[in-house]
Structures are given as C-alpha cells and as structure tokens.
Design a binder for these strands. Structure first.
Lengths: 395, 395
DNA sequence: CGATTTCATTCATCATATGAAATAAAAAGA
DNA sequence: TCTTTTTATTTCATATGATGAATGAAATCG
C-alpha cells in the first residue's frame, strides 16, 4: 500500500486546487487563485484539465454575488467523479457506506454482530462481506472506486494494524492488507477519534485553526489532535489518549487497568457506576449505560438533584485538570468538546473552568479557547471519507 | 519581518540541498541526490549554482570511502559564506556570539547584569549594545550578516514578543521589532527550550525521529517538542510547558503560582528547598541553588543518604507521572531528558520508570523510548543558529 | 593497457507557472 | 442605445526547473 491515488500524487497544484474546491464549496477561478496563491493563468490551465477529466464542473444556475464586471463562473466538484467505501467498526456494530468525491456520504448499511467473539479472519470476512455488498450497490453513474477507509475504535498502527480495540478480543490484526488484496484497492485504517477531528476541522470556519484538539466524551474519553494544520498521529499510532491521562493517582480503576484516568471520572460508565452506588438506578449492563440512561442522569443533575449534580461537578473537575495538562503541553488554539457525552457539558462546565483556572497560569489559559461542539453520529464516517480523499499516506 | 532570507525563499530544492549538506556533513553529489530525491543532473546544476555563489565548496583533501569507480567529490558548506548573530537571554545574563553558515558558533561574549531591573527599552538597549559589539568584531572573511536570533527563557509570541520571562519583571516586550529596525536585519526570538530541541534533533542519528520530546531539567523544567519532524510551537507561542503540568493537585506551591506542578517537585529549587528543610544546608539564595550545591545534593543521594535519596525518588515519581501524560497525549517516539538537572537522573530513573509503568498501559509505554541526553551549555545557542539558518518563518 | 565501475556534467526536452495581452460578459454612464 | 468601465477568464509566448540520455572523467581490476 503506498498512497491512495486519486487526485494526489498528481502535480501538487492540481491537488491543492481540488482540495480548495472541496473545502470552500463552489468557487470562482479568481477566488481559487487567491486561495492557493496561483496566477489566473495557472488556475485556468489546471481547472481546464480537471474539467476535461470530469473531476470538476461549472455549477449551472448559481451566480453568486453579482457585481460590476464579468460575472464569476462557479466551480464545484463532480460528486460522482469517484467514490470510496467508508467503514466504521465499533463495539458490536459495523457500518458501511459509499463516500462520493465531494466528501458526502450515502445511506449507512449497518450490521449488528458480536465483535468480541470474532477471530481476526472472521473480522476481515465480516468487513469484506459488507464492503462487497456496498460495492455491488454503487450506482452506475459513479466513477472509479478509489479506496477503502476504515474508522475503528482503538489503537491503529501505521494505518494498517489494529493493535488493540475495545471492540475486539484479538490483538494486532492487520485489517488493511487482506482487504487491499481482496479488493485490489488501497485501504487505510484510522482511529475513530482522529476521523472526527479531521471531519470537524474540515469546516470552513475552522480552517484557520492551526492547532486544534477535539475531545470526545462518550462511553470512553478520546481525543483527536490537529497540529500545524495536519492530523497528528504518532508514528506508532498511539498518542492522543487524552482519556488516560491522570487526574488522581490513587483514583478509581479505569478500563485500561490503571488508576485515576480522566476517563474513569468522565466516561459514561464511570458516571453511571458512581450514580448507581448512590442512587437507585437500574443495573442493566453497567459497563455500557444506554443513551437514555445517561440522558436521565443529566436531567437529574439539571433538575438540581444534589448527588447527580456533584457527580457532574466531579467529572468537570477531572476534565478541567486533564485539559490543563493538554494546554500546558500543546497549547492548542481551540479545544472542542464533543461526543455523545456533551449532553452533560452544561453540568460540567463551571467546575471544569474553575479547575482550569486553578491549574493553569493566566497567560496559558488565555491562549486557548474551549467550547462545546454539537455531536453528530456521522462525523466519524465523514472523517474517514475526507481522510481518504485528502490522501492519507500509509506508513 | 517576513522571513529570514538566506537560502530559503529561493527555489525549494536549492534550500533542501543546503540543508542536507548542513545536516549530513561533507557529502558527494550522488549521495545528495539520494537524500533529497533529485536526479544527478539536477544536483549537478544546483550545486553548480551554489558553488558559483560561494555557499558551498568542494572539500579539498578528504576523499572518503575509496572504491572501484570514479571517486566521490565531497561537498561542504563554506562556513564564512554568511553569518548571523545569536543571543541568549537568561536570568542576569546575556550571551552573544557569531554563528557561521554551517551552524557553528564562535566564542561567547557574556555580560552579567540585573535583568530583573531592566525596563523594556533598557533590555533592548542592552541587547543592541552587545550585538553591535559582536557585529564590529566580525572577521573580514565572513560574508553577509543575514539575521539575528534570540533564545530566551519564557513565553515568546510569534517569534517577536516576550510575553513573560523569569528573567524580567516587564511583560509583553517586543524585542524583535526594535532590533530589526535598528540593524535592518530579520530578527527572530524563540523559547530556549525549543532551541535546545532543534539543536539536539539536528544530530544525524536523530533525523529519523519524527516525534521527539526534549525535557530540560534545571532551575525549572522545560520542554521542546518536535512533531512531524518540525518544531511544534503553538501559534500563541505557548505550549510545551511540561514543567507546569500537574502531579499532585494539592502539592507544594510552584513558581508559577499554582500548586503541584511537576517543576515544584523536580526543579532545582524544589529539590533544594525540600533538602534544606530536612538537612542542614547553607541558605544561599534558595531560589537559585548553585551547580555546586545541587551537585553536592546528588552526591549525598548517591552515597545512600536516606533523605537525599528519597528526595530524588520523589522527583523521579513526579517526572514519571508527567511523562506518562506526555506519552498518552502525544505518543512521541523518543523522550530525551537533558539540562543541568540530568546530573541527578540516575537517582531518579528507577522511580520514574516505576511510576510510568503504574500510570501507562503497556501498549503505550512500549512505543516510546526514554533516555538521558548529556547536557551541554552550548545547545541553546547552537539551536538558535540552526533555527535561523533553517528558516524560521515569523508569524 | 584496456575493461569496468562509479561519479559528474552537458544538452535537448518536457512540464509547469506566469506576465502580458486579448477576449468575454456584465453594469454604469452618456 | 452605445460607449465606457469593471471584473473574470483565456491565450500565448516565455521563463524556470527537473530529467533522461549521452558523454566525459577518474579511479580500480585483471
């Protein structure tokens, strides 16, 4: 597996122009030139090529901002110019969909299965079956299928090997290589939190943010880091394990087997565990409380119930301390809190900010903005599409 | 201030070739081609230009690795092709020296003064005087003076403004702009720990390390981060404040005004403060114990003195926990511990590794190598020279 | 000494980017 | 309505930089 060869690996500026169009929506050639810093002549020449190849098209009606001179001709990507398959693997669930050339996604095909019982070949087989079905269903108007992207919970090594995942009992499964052989396509695997970060950073209003941390609250606590405008993933694939930085050295036991991790204060299972020990709550699978159960807990806190309130305050405190370390170490410009767990953000925020102030000198704290970001299930799978289109290099 | 315009801003490959020569010492053209991935024809053409411009030269005698065919002609940088001024500002001390085109440095000119009493204009004046003297003393054989680089303790914003420094009482001093005006040269300011990181990473054997953290133990605890092969400095200039990540929330008071920072367990002043409270030690300026005093403390621990030993163990524990957070968040390939404080590394290491094992899951710990790196005073100033030569962009 | 090997240069060629000029398509003004 | 002005895009000749192929240079090997 070398690169996903789509628009990249082609002359640099061609790729930059495509990315600019993908990012900034329909655009006139002049504006493109301004964005990628090319002369009008060059833009004309390159867009000419791209149009001949069918990758872009002039958008028909849309004449934006009519003014004095010759009107702009808006350009957009041809959605069907190419496509790719996006897969999301999480606990007991596989989702597959078709991604188009603009980064858009089709309807999800979902399959529930007991992932914890899968062998490595069983996993690959399950994935392959769903991918096969998805490929078979690609509408005829689509151009070439250019790659497969996998978003998985857990630790991914070199975009290839799933070192460890909460969804699996097997370890060190190379999921990319067998799929690549089977479908004769480039395949990349990525951590799901990284996908979400890519997806969020893709928003036009966040383009200027060079250093961005996206913290995902949910069953666990994950993070994706964009540093210097690019996804940071340590060569090993590890890193960004925000949930397992420490809050209290002798704190409660975390899933990971260590003590006092942020996650063991802020993760859904932690909140619910503590709530159940003090309140009278149903004992259904305490390791994975349902959305409804968590929502009920938030409501309880919101209505002023002292025990529930203090739980979220405690979580806020832990989160704040974790963020203080993150900010001291990396100094991101912006931290976004998202994931299903944002539902409780309002209940955590005050204590979170208090502990940030307690732990960080003002000069550092001022440099970083922290805010919640609305959660959307599709962020993960959109991220993997964008990552494949953007040209993640393997290795 | 735009860029330091030396070899950069010139056609990309010209710059890459110069950097390759600077990095990998004397090199034949073939090898250069292999390193920067250019055809022999291109290398020939570019090196031809560079030689005409006097930036490189064929090294006279040195014929490395004689073999079968036509012998290689080694190429090296002309040290005198250009020069720059490197300045290091620390508490009560300014050092200035001339940096040559290879990254080498001349004799340091040192001035002791009470930096804490300086006003902003006084600081700039003091710097300017020393720089002026250094410029006046540039040997005639040197080519153009291309820039000024400042390495300073503290928080530097946009390579220009010294937001905060332990050496000063004034805040938010723009030290770069007035010097740039005065000398009509590009000026960049950088954090000293970043300089050290750049300097260390410049070593050929560390070229392959994509993600490197350099932790500096000394009076305080600093860090420089190389991520994705490039120096990470948050847009704000903050970040990499490893010393002020937290170990114990209710721990001792740190210089920074917060509680429980790693630095308040591992910094010289912290060790000496605690030692003095339990041992009978001289009370000379406890905030800045001398090298001799610290060395004596290390000797005490090494000889098995229980109090001193436990101090360093405690420091090791704090360091280990700090590193566990660093590794969880960033997952660097390599962590180097250096700074004058490495003198006590052997006394800290066992406990450091123990707390790392306690705090980090194996999969993460395995990915990162941690080791000491011998301390050398000159690393800082060499780093700023390299950074200026390498083309730090302002902004 | 000639054959072989490795390194370096020359030169014609190709690809890409660009400035200048031309062309296109609208609104504004007379 | 017709011209002028303004802005967008294209055309074209030109410059720049990288490269393959061929050539030349300088050593060792047999």
């Amino acid at each position: 597996m070398d690169k996903i060869d789509l628009d990249h690996s082609q002359p640099l500026n061609r790729h930059r122009i495509l990315q600019a169009v993908r990012l900034h929506g329909p655009l006139a050639r002049v504006d493109l030139g301004a964005i990628v810093a090319l002369s009008p002549a060059s833009v004309s020449s390159i867009t000419g090529d791209l149009m001949r190849d069918g990758l872009i098209r002039e958008v028909p009606g849309k004449d934006a901002g009519r003014g004095r001179g010759r009107p702009k001709v808006m350009i957009e990507l041809t959605p069907t110019a190419a496509c790719m398959i996006a897969v999301k693997l999480s606990i007991n669930r596989i989702e597959v969909t078709l991604g188009d050339f603009t980064g858009g996604i089709g309807p999800l095909q979902v399959r529930a299965l007991n992932t914890l019982e899968l062998t490595d070949s069983g996993l690959v087989e399950a994935l392959a079956e769903m991918i096969e079905a998805c490929i078979a269903a690609i509408p005829s108007e689509f151009g070439p299928l250019t790659g497969i992207g996998l978003a998985v919970q857990g630790l991914v090594h070199k975009h290839e090997t799933l070192v460890w995942s909460p969804a699996l009992t097997v370890r060190n499964v190379n999921i990319a290589a067998p799929l690549a052989r089977r479908f004769h396509l480039p395949v990349i695997a990525m951590n799901d939190a990284d996908c979400i970060a890519v997806s969020i950073r893709h928003r036009p209003e966040l383009q200027a943010v060079e250093n961005l941390a996206v913290v995902m609250l949910g069953a666990g606590v994950g993070m994706g880091l964009i540093l210097g405008g690019k996804l940071h993933s340590a060569s090993s694939g590890a890193g960004a394990e925000f949930g397992h930085t420490k809050y209290q050295l002798d704190g409660p036991l975390c899933h990971c087997g260590r003590r006092g991790c942020i996650e063991s204060f802020v993760g859904d299972y932690a909140l619910y565990r503590d709530a159940r020990s003090m309140l009278d709550l149903p004992n259904t699978d305490a390791l994975h409380p349902s959305d409804d159960q968590m929502q009920a807990l938030v409501e309880l806190a919101r209505s002023g119930h002292p025990v529930a309130t203090s739980l979220f305050q405690q979580a806020g405190r832990a989160l704040g301390y974790g963020l203080s370390n993150l900010i001291a170490l990396i100094g991101p410009d912006l931290v976004l809190i998202t994931g299903s767990g944002v539902r409780g953000y309002a209940e955590m925020e005050d204590e979170m900010r208090r502990s940030l102030e307690e732990a960080l000198v003002d000069t550092l704290l001022e440099q970083t903005e922290i805010r919640a970001y609305p959660w959307d299930e599709d962020l993960t799978i959109r991220g993997i599409v964008l990552q494949v289109l953007g040209g993640a290099k393997a290795g």
